[in-house]
Structures are given as structure tokens and as C-alpha cells.
Design a protein around this nucleic acid. Structure first.
Length: 204
DNA sequence: ATGACGATTTACT
DNA sequence: GTAAATCGTCATA
């Protein structure tokens, strides 16, 4: 167990937070007290009203996007493709709808539980460790994060939070265009994806 | 009330 | 590489 991130850590712009979260730990705890956690190795920054790829593009404020308008440190969890969840950390000021999507983790604690959550009756092969959390919907499944965690405050929740890790030196961070946002025109090619260059746990 | 569409994953050719 | 799975959300009517 490590030192937990407080509000101040989240009160920054999305690019700084996307870089700053790398090398720190996302933790989720079951009602029974079992921890699953992993080191954040891949993130994407979503820049708000101007960003065509962001759900909050144009200032769109709906029941779904409400979390993005809240305080830094709030979780924004959304459902997509009819079956997947993605986990974001809201940052910036209240009413400025910016956030960071967590796209991949290097599993640390609770791997047996992660494996159980990630296994389906349909699956034939055994999951490799690098398949547990190497994508935005994989990690939410492995961590047991669903819409119920939408709007939770990462600064005081007992269920989901961020713990201080070693971080990642600037030279170890890779940068690329964001994934899955081809519809976003000129914003699709902006280099707003950040990852630990050396990690084998990044999404493909 | 209806229809189009995903900040994805998986399995299959 | 291609395609299916699968349904909440939101814009349109």
C-alpha cells in the first residue's frame, strides 16, 4: 500500500496529467477488501470543448458527459460498443471538461482475480499477463470498474484511487496519435497518447 | 419513437 | 486483415 494521490495532483491540464500518471498505480478494492492494482503505462489526453475527439466537444454537457465538467480527481467511466467500459480521470477546473483516458496497466496486485474477471466461457486460450490490462476496456474489466464507478471521487473513495509510484522519466515516454478517434478530423492526428516506451503492457 | 454510432475486443480467414 | 458482437446515448422527428 502506498501514498494516495490527493486533489492537488489532479488539478492540472490533461497533457500534464496524462504524462504525470504514467508510473503511478491505479487501485480498485472489492467490498471484501481484495485489492487489484496496476502501474499506469498508457494514457490519452482529451482537451475539452475544442477537441473533436472528446465527448465534451463543443461543450456538449449531457448525463453521460457530466463527469468531465466536475472537479479534478473525479472518475469518468463510460460505456461503449454496447459491452465495454472506459475509465478516465477528470482534471482541470470545474466546468472545463477535460480528462485523461487510462488505456493500459502493468498488473501488480490481484492478478488471479483479474484473470477471473477477464475470462469468459467463450475464450479458449489462457490469458497471458500482458493481455490482462493492455487496453482501455480490458483494464476496466480486470479491475471490476463499471458505470457504478462513474462520478466517484478518486480522492476519497475506498473502492477506486491512485497511489503514488515511481513515475516515469521524460525520456522513457513515447508519444503518438490517439487510438480509435479517426472521426475527429484534424484532431485525430494530434499526438496526445502517452506510453511507457519500454513496457510490454501497452495496448496494440 | 426511431436510428446511427461508437475513446473496443475477440475470433476467424 | 476483416468482421461480428452488442446496447446506451443522443440527435432528429
Amino acid at each position: 500500500m502506498g501514498e494516495r494521490w490527493t486533489r492537488r495532483g489532479f488539478e492540472t491540464d490533461p497533457v500534464s496529467l496524462a504524462r504525470g500518471l504514467l508510473g503511478h498505480r491505479l487501485v480498485s478494492v472489492t467490498r471484501g477488501g481484495t485489492r487489484t492494482s496496476g502501474i499506469i503505462v498508457e494514457t490519452e489526453a482529451y482537451l475539452g470543448e475544442a477537441d473533436r475527439a472528446a465527448h465534451s466537444f463543443g461543450g456538449r454537457r449531457t448525463a453521460r458527459t457530466e463527469a468531465m465538467f466536475r472537479s479534478a480527481g473525479i472518475a469518468y467511466v463510460f460505456h461503449t460498443y454496447g459491452m465495454h467500459h472506459c475509465f478516465n480521470v477528470v482534471c482541470g477546473a470545474v466546468d472545463v471538461p477535460v480528462a485523461v483516458l487510462v488505456r493500459a496497466l502493468e498488473p501488480v496486485e490481484g492478478m488471479a482475480l483479474m484473470r477471473r474477471r477477464r475470462s469468459s466461457s467463450r475464450r479458449k486460450s489462457v490469458l497471458k499477463v500482458t493481455d490482462l490490462c493492455s487496453g482501455p476496456a480490458k483494464l476496466t474489466q480486470a479491475m471490476g470498474i463499471t458505470r457504478r464507478e462513474n462520478l466517484v471521487d478518486l480522492c476519497d473513495s475506498e473502492r477506486v484511487f491512485i497511489e503514488r509510484g515511481k513515475g516515469v522519466a521524460a525520456g522513457e515516454i513515447g508519444v503518438s496519435a490517439r487510438i480509435g478517434v479517426a472521426y475527429a478530423a484534424e484532431w485525430a492526428c494530434r499526438e496526445l497518447r502517452f506510453y511507457v516506451a519500454r513496457s510490454g503492457h501497452v495496448s496494440r
